[in-house]
Write a protein that binds this DNA or RNA. Structure first.
Lengths: 160, 160
DNA sequence: AGTGAAACCAGAAGCCC
DNA sequence: GGGCTTCTGGTTTCACT
């Protein structure tokens, strides 16, 4: 996975930042912001996709409005010979799992969970303990979340 | 923030899942998948946006390809009278901070950092310690990351 | 690489069921 | 609430610089 860095200029970086904030801006809008025409912007974006700098486009969902109101972090500790990718693979099968981070050091992994209520959380943690070779967990309730990626401007224009 | 839950049916949920995977599918495509016409899909999406279930649309960026190859979690401990929102506000000003979670329990907050190298990480942690009323930090290097939101299908079709 | 004009096609709106 | 048709306008391609 030794991806050498593509050559990007300031315009590319500005486009990336704009698309991260709102991936549905019009090509002409983006062009106005960075000082290019719409076709030029399109070719830039195509290139960024081809290079793998942009890996996809996603809708930001407010899971609280779907009834999944609780969030928690669970630290996982595994038996010694567990491979990192197995930890990750086991955890991400659960729909409650939003993110998995394998780490160097004491907890072997951090799992971010989204659940509907405490009973649901208990079930999810039980599942985690069952799957794989977990030797122990420690769970931390989340009181508030802030994500840079979620700092999108509201879905006003909606070209797509 | 007591948002009562909007009434969503299975089609809504299927649309949300599809848009989370790829927010740039054509309305007609989405309609084919869920068994509706394109205008009907548009009305559904408009409603989901209006309800605040969909809060935005963002491009998924591979920060490793931008040279920000290292990731870390830093646990923050603050002096007793620090307000949660102040913790969050202080951390998110740093460009290195990707996510901030305030928690109930031992660490007061978890901060996910993205940096270019170890020197950069040291500077970011120093900043965190300076800003706000941090009494201590403990940092964990991340070996691998998996995010449900990043499981987008590649940017093939590109309507917008 | 970028611009500008033209063609094409997806999205938005109106209307009827 | 959904489908169909029309029309608007953004995206895309092409020719040129």
């Amino acid at each position: 996975m030794m991806s050498d860095l593509p050559q990007l200029d300031d315009v590319d970086r500005e486009l990336l930042a704009a698309l991260e904030r709102n991936s549905r801006r019009r090509l002409a809008d983006l062009g106005e912001q960075v000082g290019l025409s719409a076709p030029a912007v399109k070719r830039r974006i195509d290139r960024l996709e081809r290079l793998g700098v942009i890996t996809g486009y996603t809708a930001v969902i407010d899971h609280e409005k779907l009834g999944w109101a609780l969030e928690a972090f669970t630290e996982l500790r595994m038996i010694g010979n567990t491979r990192l990718e197995d930890i990750e693979a086991a955890a991400r099968d659960l729909p409650e799992v939003q993110q998995v981070f394998t780490t160097a050091g004491d907890p072997d992994a951090l799992v971010r969970l989204r659940v509907q209520d405490m009973a649901h959380l208990r079930r999810a943690i039980d599942q985690l303990r069952r799957s794989g070779q977990v030797t122990g967990t420690k769970t931390l309730m989340v009181l508030s979340t802030w994500s840079r990626a979620d700092r999108t401007t509201g879905p006003r224009p909606r070209p797509e």
